[in-house]
Amino acid sequence: MRKWHRWLSVFFGVFLFWIAATGLLSQAADLWPSAEPTTAEQLAPAPPAAFVCPKGWRCRPPEATTGFASLKGFFHHLHSGEEFGLPGVIISILSGLALAFFSLSGLWMYIRMWSNRRSKKLNGGMFWK
């Protein structure tokens, strides 16, 4: 198991870092304050003349984003691999599966090491030096 863990981590480590970085940028773009506070009414074009808002609805144009926050969609496409077409999406899916494998195999290796130390009656408890 360690051999697979080690060799897969060499390949997928780069992609997992990419996914982590673009995910962080996507979330940061959401939280980033816009440079100039504007309302949607100021930035949105006027609705078509034939448009009538249905009774009981509040019809508003979507909020326009400016600055760093406008890059959220781009970061999401990088994060999901969509920006690179089908190969990017496949690598993104495989990276997600690799992350699940690393989590489970790492836990499995830790439990095996812990049980080996416990059977040999070595000190250290759950976290040894």
Rank of each mutant, 00 (worst) to 15 (best):
F75N: 00
L104V: 05
A69G: 11
R2A: 13
E63M: 12
R6Y: 13
F102D: 05
T65K: 15
F84W: 06
H79S: 01
L107R: 03
H5Y: 10
W18M: 07
P62E: 09
R6K: 15
E82T: 03
H5Q: 14
V52T: 12
A29K: 05
G96D: 00
L25Y: 07
L97D: 04
G106T: 04
H76L: 13
C59F: 00
G73Q: 00
F68D: 04
H5P: 08
F11L: 15
P33D: 10
L97S: 04
P37L: 07
L122D: 08
W114E: 10
S103E: 06
E82L: 06
M126N: 09
S9P: 08
F84S: 03
N123W: 09
L86W: 14
F102H: 06
F84M: 09
P87T: 03
S70F: 03
F101G: 05
D30S: 13
L107V: 05
Q27N: 14
A50T: 13
I19N: 07
L94S: 05
I90K: 08
L94E: 07
P54R: 06
S105V: 07
T22F: 08
H77Y: 02
T65V: 07
K121L: 09
F84G: 01
P54T: 06
L8Q: 10
G96C: 02
H76K: 13
L24Q: 04
K129N: 13
P48I: 10
A69T: 09
V14F: 15
L104H: 00
L43V: 07
F68G: 08
G124K: 00
V10M: 11
L43Q: 14
A100V: 14
I111V: 12
V52C: 04
G96H: 00
W4F: 14
R58C: 07
A28M: 12
A21K: 01
A100C: 10
A46G: 08
A64I: 08
V89Q: 13
K121Y: 06
L86A: 15
W7L: 13
F51A: 10
A21T: 04
T66Y: 02
W114D: 10
A40M: 06
S34Y: 06
A64T: 12
G125N: 02
G85A: 00
A35F: 13
V14D: 08
R117T: 02
K72R: 13
P33A: 07
S103C: 11
A35L: 11
S70L: 04
L86S: 11
C59K: 03
M109I: 09
S34F: 08
G73M: 00
F15V: 15
S105G: 01
F84T: 02
S119W: 00
F15T: 12
F51E: 08
S119D: 02
L24R: 05
E63T: 12
R60V: 13
A21S: 04
A49E: 14
K3Y: 12
G67C: 01
F127R: 11
A35T: 15
R117D: 04
A20E: 07
F74D: 04
F68T: 08
C59S: 02
L78D: 00
